[in-house]
Write a protein that binds this DNA or RNA. Structure first.
Length: 943
DNA sequence: TGACCGGAAGTTTTT
DNA sequence: CTTCCGGTCA
């Protein structure tokens, strides 16, 4: 977008750069475009700011938002070197990178997500002092293992991320300490700890502080209304250290994540941090998304909130027309089933109605233009049933019944059989009853036979055992020949299409189950015995997993069918739709009734936490009103609000208090059955989605080798079985990184230093306690690292970059990300020659065919970063006698890899994941056990 | 009309 | 464990 196409306010936001800015961006105000424009403006040398990409940090709220912003920035900016050095991402991501780049010890750490963290808490229940935290009202009742895990996690989060009014009580203080020490000892972070440690590392004169001081000039914080106390602290600290300009962007009316302690007081009071001369407030009040009806309705509603910035407004730019008495409906029905039926009919009627989106040509509305927004997931069930009745396609991220699907019941049956809960024939039946399968009963019998050999011995404890539940699943799939192909019926093209879709769902669910096993084993692989391992897995499934896996976990990022979208209002944040349906405007639903039951405040004194009521949503329904505000402002033109008394539940019989507030806007029609039949209908056509694709090299490599493997890994999510030897490759890698980084600082290392370095960087997370493997693995890493140092130390002067982030923008919508291990620059008789180096260890558990593609791609990223083409590429195989084989890099290599990426992305967009017909590739494919072609080529299974 | 009681049903989610 | 509804009683 050109500068002069922007509104005066947007231009102002972009061109004022000598002050701290608060940009109050109403819904649909072109916020991301403005930020991207600002960054492009700052980088443009013509504007005289002399800024480099590394001088700018931009924080976003989610990875998805980061990818979008990055893409827009790269599209808006000129072509400058070093763009990969600009940080655009989440606060957590920045903190982690800062820690790992600056503190050698943290390089080998990984971050536990919510599920793994709960497993971790359960595993180390005793050690982390969880049982010392007892009810305030009754000290005899402590937090219970497996049952109160989430409460413990919540307490730890709150205690570290909020502002404390007072010293913590002894039991919580000590639990916090023990909990963090346990995490550190296993080389894990949780999300809060990353931020906590990063702030700690910003103490005076630290490495990190010095770097920030020198480099940071612009700090941009998107969605600033959702910042919580610890994040605010980090932002203040970064500003303090560097004296950078701070630009915060957000909308106080869209703060909807308060239970994490996010607080819109920071954006409301941002101006008070500075004196008048250094601060400027810029309201972006023009909504380019919605019609005047929508903006007026939303404004009227939100005006009832007291806790917000005054003197601002949202005005439609009238790009969408507003037909009063038609576009915005508020309909009441006698029962929920009538309400749902009316919703289905409304959808049927609005399909094909003429619509045009921004500059786009006129088209007929399609299913994917419609969103049904919910306050709670429980509302989804009956709506979904009604849509099914009407054959209306929909996608829903929620309604999680993974463990009830027949395919997952079959997979679970494997473990119930091993434990002796079910018999062989019962297990076989679970699989043969799957819809239209062509599974061979003989093969299944064989699979069960082989399975019986792996029944754990309950009495003896073997030394150095290995019992991988994931491997057991994979073996069962191999023996039983359970392949996607066996669920596809090609008797005619219609059936083929349908059965393909069903087979995909089955394997998608099995892939998710593979992830469930992986989550469990990543934390619990090294338990005391096979029998114990199996037992605790089954307990996890029975008692915990259903609660641990969140609604919406079943999302598939690569699928975008033409279907009605059903989602929660929270999930809809940042999205827009021509048609929005908000059902169930009842009291106790929106605003929603609070959840009762045991919660963290029975264990943690409310008075300790500053602004505590926010965590519980006690603010006179303002939070809930903001939610409805967000929901309404998702709509571009059409909005159907509806309600009906729920006869089955007396909580939902009375109208929501917000209904009256909405009526006051005078834009709604009540109880009008809008059939749209009078309106001109044209061909229904889904919006051309220019879907941004952001890929990293690992994903891309999967696709290059075989599109079907990409499908198994990235779409279905099958995880490779763990084993005790894992970690050698990563340990090497990390040790080498530390050596290179220290070499860059001219540090010389003696053998003792090297040994300490190896100790720090070595991590074998899946070793069992009694194992004898630890010494040999460790020794191997050490010997190879020492050898590497001896062989290469004379070359260390030539190191140019270590662990360098790269990115390569292929076109408007494709961004490839990666990280180069090492870049060397050698002065050969007055001429500089650059070599890109990638390290491989020969004994990685997953067979990686050494591929030149990876290096060529890196070379592409390197050219993007420096503006120069590298001269050589080379793979250094650690532990081999003659590991160095640099190869000349040609221009044609770069063109070739570009074409390859382009064709891969096209296929991903078209969802074309055809298996590669190539025996050699099949032989070396680490997921070949799950692939039908392994039989065709008679390839050996990879373990 | 207000106090009291029993019964039923009770959220959102990213890193 | 808490909140809300709706019935009953004073």
């Amino acid at each position: 977008m050109q500068f002069d196409e922007l509104s005066p306010k947007q231009q102002e936001a972009i061109s004022i750069n000598d002050k701290h800015l608060r940009i109050i961006a109403c819904a649909g105000s072109g916020k991301t475009t403005t930020i991207a424009g600002k960054v492009a403006y700052l980088l443009d040398p013509a504007n005289g700011y002399d800024l480099k990409p590394e001088n700018i940090i931009a924080f976003t709220y989610t990875d998805k938002a980061a990818a979008e912003l990055k893409n827009k920035i790269l599209n808006a900016s000129g072509h400058y070197t070093g763009m990969a050095n600009m940080y655009i991402g989440t606060i957590h991501g920045w903190c982690l990178k800062a820690l790992q780049d600056n503190i050698y010890e943290y390089q080998s750490f990984s971050v536990l997500d919510e599920i793994k963290l709960k497993l971790f808490i359960d595993k180390y229940y005793e050690r982390i002092g969880m049982k010392d935290i007892a009810k305030l009202s009754n000290p005899a009742v402590p937090l219970r293992r497996f049952i109160d895990t989430s409460i413990f996690a919540r307490i730890m989060d709150i205690v570290r991320e909020s502002d404390l009014e007072n010293e913590l009580p002894e039991n919580i203080k000590s639990a916090k300490k023990k909990y963090e020490q346990t995490l550190l000892s296993k080389k894990f972070f949780d999300f809060s700890m990353i931020m906590d440690r990063a702030i700690e590392s910003l103490k005076p004169d630290s490495n990190l502080t010095k770097k920030i001081e020198q480099s940071l000039k612009y700090l941009i914080v998107d969605e600033y209304q959702d910042v919580n106390p610890i994040q605010e602290k980090l932002i203040n600290k970064l500003h303090e250290i560097s004296g950078c300009n701070v630009v915060v962007v957000g909308d106080d009316d869209q703060n909807i994540y308060q239970w994490r302690g996010s607080n819109n007081k920071y954006i409301i009071n941002f101006d008070k941090k500075f004196n008048e001369a250094e601060f400027k407030n810029i309201p972006l009040g023009i909504n380019y998304r919605s019609s005047e009806g929508i903006t007026r309705l939303a404004e009227t509603l939100i005006a009832n909130n007291i806790d917000r910035i005054r003197n601002k407004s949202m005005v439609s730019d009238h790009r969408q027309s507003f037909a009063k008495g038609q576009d915005l409906l508020f309909n009441e029905y006698d029962s929920v089933s009538e309400e749902n039926e009316a919703i289905a009919e409304y959808i049927e009627n609005i399909i094909g109605v003429e619509f045009s989106d921004r500059e786009e040509k006129k088209r007929g509305l399609a299913y994917s233009d419609i969103a049904i927004l919910l306050r709670t997931w429980s509302k989804a069930e009956t709506i979904v049933e009604e849509l099914d009745k009407h054959n209306i396609p929909y996608i829903t991220a929620g309604v999680n019944q993974l463990f009830e699907t027949p395919e997952v019941e079959g997979a679970l049956g494997i473990y119930y059989f091993l434990y002796g809960d079910i018999e062989a024939d019962e297990l076989i039946k679970l699989w043969t009853k799957l819809p239209n399968n062509r599974l061979d009963v003989k093969k299944l019998k064989m699979a069960v036979d082989n399975l019986s050999k792996r029944k754990p011995d309950l009495n003896t404890v073997r030394d150095n055992w290995e019992y991988s539940l994931q491997d057991i699943l994979w073996e069962f799939i191999v023996d039983g020949e359970i392949y996607e192909d066996n669920f596809i019926d090609d008797s005619n093209s219609e059936i083929l299409k349908k059965s393909r879709e069903k087979a995909e769902i089955i394997f998608f669910n099995l892939g998710k189950f593979s992830q469930v096993i992986n989550d469990f084993e990543e934390i619990n692989f090294n338990s005391v015995s096979p029998a114990r391992h199996l037992f605790s897995f089954l307990s996890f499934i029975t008692y915990a997993a259903r609660d641990y896996y969140p609604q919406g976990w079943l999302n598939n990022p690569y699928k975008t069918p033409n279907a009605v979208q059903i989602m929660t209002i929270h999930q809809a944040k940042g999205l827009e739709f021509p048609v929005v349906i908000i059902p169930g405007l009842n009291k106790n639903y929106l605003p929603s009734k609070k959840k009762g039951g045991l919660n963290e405040w029975h264990f943690l004194d409310r008075a300790l936490i500053s602004e505590q009521p926010r965590y519980e949503g006690n603010d006179d329904k303002e939070d809930e009103r903001r939610l409805l505000y967000v929901a309404i402002t998702r709509s571009q033109k059409y909005l159907l609000l509806s309600r009906a008394p729920d006869l089955d539940n007396r909580l939902y019989r009375v109208e929501s208090q917000f209904a009256g507030e909405l009526r006051r806007a005078n834009v709604l029609v009540q109880d009008k059955k809008e059939d749209f039949s009078s309106q001109l209908k044209i061909d229904s056509k889904p919006k051309e989605k220019i879907k941004n694709i952001s890929l990293d090299f690992t994903t891309l490599k999967d696709f290059f080798d075989c599109p079907y493997r990409f499908k198994l890994v990235s779409m279905y999510g099958f995880k490779f079985p763990l084993n005790q030897r894992m970690g050698v490759g990563r340990s090497f890698h990390n040790a080498l990184m530390e050596i290179h980084k220290r070499a860059q600082k001219q540090e010389e290392l003696n053998t003792k230093d090297l040994i300490r370095l190896v100790e720090r960087q070595t991590n074998f997370p899946y070793l069992t306690k009694s194992t004898k493997l630890k010494r040999p693995l460790w020794r191997k890493v050490r010997n190879n690292v020492v050898d590497y140092y001896e062989d290469n130390k004379d070359d260390f002067d030539n190191i140019e970059f270590v662990e360098q982030d790269i990115q390569y923008k292929l076109d408007e919508n494709i961004l490839v990300l990666g990280r180069i291990d090492l870049i060397k620059k050698r002065n050969e008789s007055g001429k500089f020659e650059t070599t890109i180096v990638e390290f491989k260890s020969e004994d990685k558990p997953i067979v990686t065919r050494v591929t030149k593609d990876q290096l060529k791609l890196y070379a592409l990223g390197h050219r993007e970063l420096t503006g120069q083409r590298a001269d050589y590429i080379m793979t250094y195989i650690i532990g081999e006698n003659n590991p160095k084989t640099p190869e000349k890099l040609l221009d044609s290599d770069l063109n070739e890899i570009e074409d390859k990426i382009k064709s891969a992305v096209e296929k991903i967009r078209d969802e074309d994941f055809t298996k590669v017909e190539d025996k050699e590739k099949c032989d070396s494919c680490y997921e070949n056990r799950l692939c039908y072609y392994r039989l065709k080529y008679n390839s050996k299974c990879i373990r």
